[in-house]
Simulated assay, not measured.
Amino acid sequence: MSIGAGIALFAIGAILAFAVNVDVPGVSLDMIGYILMGAGFLVFVIGLVLMMRRRQTESVTHVAVDPAGGERVTRNSTSTSGDQGV
């Protein structure tokens, strides 16, 4: 979601900075375009970092002995981005 928002901000900023030739008193559309382009780039990079961080997985193996039957019990659990599954 944030990667798409970053691209959209960058595109809107580029349109304002390079394609719009309207003079608005007291407002610099070029500067607003450059600010939006910078914000879009920043949101895009943050989105990439968060996406890479979410893809990390952690695998844990628990080994115990069942007291009733004396059998060895192995439990595997894998967590991805905070969620746990067995």
Rank of each mutant, 00 (worst) to 15 (best):
S2P: 04
S2R: 01
I3L: 13
A5K: 11
G6R: 00
A8T: 12
A8E: 11
A8D: 12
L9T: 02
L9E: 05
F10D: 00
G13R: 09
G13F: 10
A14K: 01
A17R: 12
F18S: 09
A19S: 12
D23S: 14
D23T: 13
V24W: 13
P25R: 11
S28E: 11
L29I: 06
L29F: 13
M31N: 02
I32F: 09
I32M: 10
G33M: 09
Y34R: 12
Y34Q: 14
I35S: 07
L36I: 06
L36E: 02
G38A: 13
G40T: 01
G40P: 00
F41R: 03
V43I: 14
V43W: 00
F44H: 06
V45H: 02
I46T: 11
I46H: 06
G47R: 04
G47H: 08
G47I: 07
V49Q: 06
V49Y: 09
V49C: 07
L50H: 09
M52Q: 05
M52L: 11
R53V: 14
R54H: 05
R54E: 06
R55A: 12
Q56C: 03
E58C: 05
S59P: 05
S59D: 04
S59A: 07
T61P: 02
T61E: 08
D66L: 06
D66R: 04
A68N: 11
R72L: 12
R72S: 04
V73S: 00
V73I: 13
V73T: 07
T74H: 00
T74D: 00
R75H: 12
R75M: 10
R75G: 03
T78A: 12
T78R: 15
T80Y: 03
T80G: 03
S81R: 10
G82Y: 05
G82C: 05
Q84A: 12
Q84N: 14
V86W: 14
